[in-house]
Design a protein around this nucleic acid. Structure first.
Lengths: 191, 191
DNA sequence: GTCTATAGCCGGATAGAC
DNA sequence: GTCTATCCGGCTATAGAC
């Protein structure tokens, strides 16, 4: 843990992520961002080199955390259900930490220029690990033999969009949410 | 069913929705759109009055269909589970019909200017009906007594993002998808 | 490290010929 | 109904004073 005073550059990136969530990368101008930080647009360039760089840092930082995290989960020696719960937990934790960055990750990745390929590589690696966990769970009979593509889509979509929901819950009890969301995703909702 | 030759205006709106899905409303220029249609930017204005109008038509058309559809479902006299299946079916049908428009509905609604309030009203109405179905299902003991906000978020998010997945399935068998997705959302995935 | 000023480009939209 | 030409405003980013 480092000091809780953010550098100017960090302030800028945090504000940028908030604005990107509201309007999307393309619709946020450097003047908007500067005003939100409380300086003039030209002054931003003492701290960052381009609008593009801000987006890259926001997205790649989070994407890396997800990919690293699922590698760790995948190599643990437990059942598929425990691994899926760990994935749910990771999504909730990272989203609660940085909901605005999650929005950029979900909605603005296509505006990455130089780093687009690298991002796509991280995303593929993530999806591959997730898929492996599910397929192993099905082979070992822990999970139902439903269409795995639909299953993967359904769960991953819910997890990827937690950023829309979590910030509205001011008094979020994280451990409770992990339990309840895992229950709904894994066990369904019909009595 | 009307003629399957689209008017120029319809061509423009269809292409626009495709481009909006790829890059978002703000990042698509009238020059991009014109090139995709095969004319020059100025010529677009013989068919539409503004970029804003294109967005409004794409989004409000679909939003209206969803709100009308769920009103019909909600007033039927069946159990909550049947109603939820009907909602799943509606989402799959409307998304398969117009996946690009669904993308705009999900991602670009905040760029509506004059029609933003009307859109928000439609969305609120939709969510209210959905919530009522779920709460009734819980009261009557058809659905588990899990946290209804998490339940609503989870299912609605999956349904709203079908546009990302459905177009990749060229040989989509709609009825099968309705059955399989309903099964996963309602009954869960654990054996 | 912030400012003012501005370069240089690209955006949506219009005018008017054909 | 499409075109060329263009207006005018806003965009990212830079230059250089303080």
């Amino acid at each position: 843990m480092r000091s809780n005073t953010l550098s100017r550059k960090e302030q800028i990136c945090v504000k940028a992520a908030q604005l990107f969530k509201e309007k999307g990368y393309s619709a946020v101008t450097m003047r908007d961002l500067a005003a939100a930080v409380g300086i003039k647009a030209a002054s931003l360039y003492n701290h960052i080199t381009s609008k593009q760089q801000i987006l890259s840092e926001i997205i790649l930082d989070i994407a890396q955390q997800f990919t690293d995290g699922i590698e760790t989960i995948a190599t643990q020696e437990t059942d598929a259900i425990s691994k899926l719960k760990a994935v749910v937990s990771q999504h909730i934790t990272l989203t609660a930490d940085n909901p605005y960055g999650m929005a950029a990750l979900n909605n603005d990745w296509m505006h990455l220029e130089g780093k687009l390929e690298y991002y796509l590589k991280l995303r593929s690696a993530y999806e591959k690990q997730f898929k492996t966990i599910v397929l192993e769970g099905q082979e070992l009979g822990e999970l139902k033999d439903v269409n795995s593509e639909i299953l993967l889509f359904s769960i991953l979509t819910t997890l990827r969009n937690l950023y829309l929901w979590i910030p509205k819950k001011a008094d979020l009890e994280k451990d409770k949410l992990i339990e309840e969301l895992s229950e709904i995703l894994l066990q369904g909702i019909v009595k």
